[in-house]
Design a protein around this nucleic acid. Structure first.
Lengths: 348, 348
DNA sequence: TCACGTCGCTAAACTGATTTAGCAGAGCAT
DNA sequence: ATGCTCTGCTAAATCAGTTTAGCGACGTGA
């Protein structure tokens, strides 16, 4: 892999100058007094030899590697990770950096390995990512260099990138209000054990805050808040069936994520109800399956790609604010409509 | 990031020996004649100082980096990539290596960048991965070192790792035959433009080969082979509706992937048919959504994790066979049953 | 004419490891 | 006493860059 490469010494010799001169020219150093002709000769020689600097040699001296570590608990290998990594990859490339990926899987030994690998390679910075938005504690060893948290917060007040879940809550609620839904809006996905599951609760709390505030401002209260042990399709299914058994059937259901909505669709389909005519469904995340559903699901998208990109920007471009909220854009599709029977009747 | 680390010189000094001695001991060199006591002193010193070798310095000299490049067209950021990366990550860690991830997005300039980044960093090997099983051509520059293709083949006869699509075809067909399905098995997902879309066709051809051979051995022929422009839910939906419009309704549908099956579920649900009582559905890939469907979908799983792992093994453990087929295990769930009316009647 | 500053450039040190070549001393045979 | 081998270890070169310190030539002002 990469034998026979021209070295700086080769370039210097061909340009008839010293290694020092060649190094300075190629690094575009200011304040050096090398002549215009010397510059030209060096550039020409480098070009002709196809010279590329040896990263190992350079970083041995400079302690910079043009490498960023992307450490995650488990995110790197889930469906949600793609965008995060792609955004980071793109932003890194624009800055001539490269991504070293490791995964801790929540395992202390693996984390230890990841940290050592990172330290040994003297990466220029670390992006510490979590699968689900949550609070975590960062191993002290990596705090010696720049760190940005991605999709997570920490006690250490490190700069972090988070999706704007509260803003998404506002958007969702406004959308429903805009279609004329009022007092028959149900919500699926509250979680009783928020202490035990801070991952879910961080997003859940924020989303709910946005929803409640917006509805309250319009003088509206949620009809029901349905609790779920987890945010999986089967829980959405069960919760929706419970909802349909009520005398005051909701006109719209807000699901805390698309998997719950997936289950809701199944329950509604079984009950012979059609979305959005009989009932609107709206959700959070923009899972790929959201656009597979019939009708396609309206949902506030987790801006993974933007978030990954932002993390690299914070890490490399300095002046990192304490916290960077990335907006969650609403994907307007076909699962929301005015309440059935509107504008007149409100019963079915 | 990583200042103040003890160097080999520090270890040597503390052990009262030379750098040479320390280096040899720590690298476990055979044939050196250093005393047992010298060994102990070096180990102790390294331990006490928390010594970790500087990778940049080491690779400058040895041209080894304990780093593998994972180059992909687009795979790294799709839902299918997770397992591939995780498997590779695990196998790499076991061999004390680390993964450098880049993506070409099928763009020549990005590919160029990726290659240069790799060559500059002198990675020990390259895993070249494709999103969809297909034939590709590898940029010559990286052929100077070890390369393994993941989910792809090439004209250069490089070692490659592929899912055993043909074997999966056999499994699928055997399963259906085992449940008693015979002459009313339909297939969705043939593709007309296989020349223009080698990605799909490589898997499609192999799967079909396995299915046909197995059915033929039992004296059975496919009832219909339904063509689809792509393998998306909407195409599965349309194809299934077409199937249901026939007088000889199939007793089982084989979908070439889970997204098609997803669409098939939608069409069957709309038609008021229940799976698997009225009709069995079976598929390929084991997309995460397969287990969200009701009933959960039986499908031959793409062994992504195994494949990623295997790629690293081939790359690092030497003696790479030309081609490594990884079996696709069948996830037996609830979407397959005996034909409706069996064992007696065959009409509905 | 000499001191001084500027210009254009280079020698050599330095980064932290591995590796080659070889040295001092002990033991043994001649 | 000499030559030989073996043992246990080390000095110095090397990898490919960056950086520090400084050198010789030239112009200028006193």
């Amino acid at each position: 892999m990469g034998r026979d490469r021209a070295t700086l010494a080769d370039v210097a010799k061909r340009a008839g100058l010293s290694k020092t001169a060649a190094s300075m020219v190629l690094n575009g150093r200011e304040g050096t007094r090398l002549s215009a002709e010397a510059h030209q000769r060096v550039f020409a020689a480098a070009e002709e030899l196809g010279y590329r600097p040896n990263v190992a040699a350079r970083s041995l001296r400079t302690r910079k590697t043009a490498t960023i570590a992307f450490v995650s608990d488990i995110v790197a290998t889930t469906r949600f990770a793609g965008g995060l990594i792609r955004g980071a990859l793109d932003a890194a490339r624009e800055r001539d950096h490269v991504l070293l990926i490791t995964e801790t899987q929540g395992d202390a030994a693996f984390e230890q390995y990841a940290i050592e690998a990172i330290l040994d390679r003297q990466v220029d910075g670390v992006i510490y990512a979590a699968m689900a938005t949550r609070r975590l504690s960062v191993p002290p060893a990596i705090l010696s260099g720049p760190v940005v948290l991605l999709n997570a917060t920490s006690a250490e007040e490190l700069p972090c990138v988070l999706p704007d879940d509260e803003g998404a809550g506002v958007t969702i609620a406004e959308t429903l209000l805009g279609y004329g839904h009022r007092d028959r809006i149900a919500l699926i996905g509250r979680n009783r054990q928020k202490e035990r599951d801070p991952e879910i609760s961080l997003a859940a709390e924020a989303r709910l805050r946005g929803i409640r505030a917006t509805l309250a401002a319009a003088g509206v209260k949620l009809l029901v808040e349905n609790f779920c042990p987890e945010w999986l399709p089967e829980h959405g299914y069960t919760a929706t069936r419970a909802l349909l058994a009520r005398p005051d059937r909701p006109t719209a259901i807000i699901c805390m994520n698309d998997r719950l909505a997936f289950g809701a669709y199944q329950a509604l389909g079984e009950a012979g109800l059609t979305i959005p005519d009989d009932l609107s469904v709206i959700s959070f995340d923009d899972d790929p399956t959201a656009s597979w559903l019939r009708p396609r699901l309206s949902t506030a998208a987790l801006p993974h790609e933007q978030m990954g990109r932002r993390a690299v920007e914070l890490l490399l471009d300095g002046n990192a604010p304490a916290q960077s909220l990335v907006p969650m854009p609403l994907r307007r599709r076909r699962s929301v409509a005015p309440p059935s029977g509107s504008p007149a009747a409100e019963h079915d």
